[in-house]
Design a protein around this nucleic acid. Sequence first.
DNA 1: CTGAAAGCGCTAACAG
DNA 2: CTGTTAGCGCTTTCAG
Lengths: 346, 346
Amino acid sequence: MAASDRTGDRITIYHVARRAGVSIATVSRALRDSHLVTPATRERIQAVIEELNYTPSRAGRALAEGRHAANGIVFPDLTGPYFAEVVLGYEEVAAELGRSVLILATHGRPDAARTALELAGRVDGMAISLRTVPDGVVTRIVETGVPVVLVARPPLPGVDAVSTENRATARELADHLVGHGYTRIGFLGDPDVSPDVAGRYAGLVDGFRAAGLPAPPPVRCGLDMDVGEAAAAELLAGRTRPEAVVCANDELALGVLTVAERAGLDVPGDLAVTGWDDVMAARFARLTTVRQPMRELGATAARWLHDLITDRTSPRLVEARREVLPTALVVRDSCGDHAGNKEAPT
Amino acid sequence: MAASDRTGDRITIYHVARRAGVSIATVSRALRDSHLVTPATRERIQAVIEELNYTPSRAGRALAEGRHAANGIVFPDLTGPYFAEVVLGYEEVAAELGRSVLILATHGRPDAARTALELAGRVDGMAISLRTVPDGVVTRIVETGVPVVLVARPPLPGVDAVSTENRATARELADHLVGHGYTRIGFLGDPDVSPDVAGRYAGLVDGFRAAGLPAPPPVRCGLDMDVGEAAAAELLAGRTRPEAVVCANDELALGVLTVAERAGLDVPGDLAVTGWDDVMAARFARLTTVRQPMRELGATAARWLHDLITDRTSPRLVEARREVLPTALVVRDSCGDHAGNKEAPT
DNA sequence: CTGAAAGCGCTAACAG
DNA sequence: CTGTTAGCGCTTTCAG
């Protein structure tokens, strides 16, 4: 209330100490657990803290402690539901562990490397996901001593990595499609763009091979809905329209669905479509897809990071952690007719 | 490369200075613009920085500069697409402005107040959205001198606030529904839960009043899909099933759609449904809804915050800013039959 | 143009 | 149990 403490400069631990008639060390101790403070003293300090509406400066604390109590996460974008879920899972466990989280969406910006490096300077550890910064940047960050966990991103020697299963489930999907009797099946997505897409394509090819079908060349494209629309338009305009098109992710598939509808095509009658991710819209579009534990992906990264940050034991003596989270085929209407049992394929 | 600078302690400005044969002050200058450094010196320093893979400590810098170059944003959750978009817009402009962003999802946790206050201690400004922390906490944060912008949240004296238009568009929606000839219309959502929902309900009532129809009492419920399913089940089980149900947001509406389908009801034949937000799934569910500029909501908050942080002129002399972003009705199939013109109502 | 030195707010020995 | 006193890494006058 004292006018002198009002809107002026920041209220520091010194103000609190003076007003409570103790030293800053005591205030500092009272701020944390510390049974090294008389209940009476502690109470008095607590009262002053509230009276002054004091909040300790994180910067000061970070500098003194040598840590930030914060984690970072780098991802390409937040438009699709995919990364929103990953970030959510990450934030959730980080918060439980008492750490703040800093986000960095690279948006394919050219200065992503710089900003990522800069982010590394203000966190105790960070998760780096696909299509954000080149491996070289990751390596540099690791070299600065900041613990890193790779998320849905090709492994790097000595760096932990979590990802989700692709190939086996894609194979399952291929088998299902083959079971529908399709022989002309297209693939939308660029295997070179990410190991995830590569794995999905590989699994598909596995299935075709096993069925004695020729592997379709991938129609290389990005992963956004409008890109999907464009690619689909092209695909459907071609000489021999495929009977089914497997898309590298749901957004692409949703784009295909949009184009198909616009073209008056019946799905799955005229064209079967499948996606990957099982975003909310997929359900309402009746899209056959593959469910990924995105939340768990982020949560796992946060947990590992916490271990790396706190353990601090034998920096590189222990092997880098690797984990591939399971995925599941979700069969809906978009891939063809199913007699009766709709959502219980396996 | 020097073994002494490897994985040991953090590399500081001192290491760089020593190795470059200059003082830390010079390194500090070279780190930023500063034409106060000879190109030659600057280059030498730059080389050492890269050789040592040096990144300045944000904590040290924050302490010395008295600012964090970071913004915070507090939101309830990231599950729905709503806040993901808001956060995205926020991050995007914050990044452009050269500031990092810290996120805090309160999840309705009891310690939300504490964590929000703590967040306030590590940012230069923060956006606080609906249903996260009580007004008292916002006030305390404002009192600590941290600039705050309220997002989609009831205004507070002296605090900037951005939100989206509700009442007028809801009135428009009501008129449209009345035009379809419905007289028994239900409302799903709790006006007390947020001014947004209250505004939507109010607009609806406006429309009914104008048409001489009785205002339906709201079926109070949360805003999640499962909550919507539960509420819908209840609503549909009642004696007189409404002809149309207006939902406070899309997720609720999607839940109703799910229940209706499960019950074998035709939408809009047996039941018309509308939502609010226009999330991606809405399009594929053919849901009539209202589009909100969520991204812009976040972007605006970030811009205002930047002004508040940098301007620093006349702290409270200027009026608090207020802005209500426009929304637009999106008519699809779920609200009833439309002869021909589907997506062009107004 | 460059260096020396004084903090920024807090933590953590080290003495009482 | 409490106070003193160094720093943590960086920016920034103030002198050269």
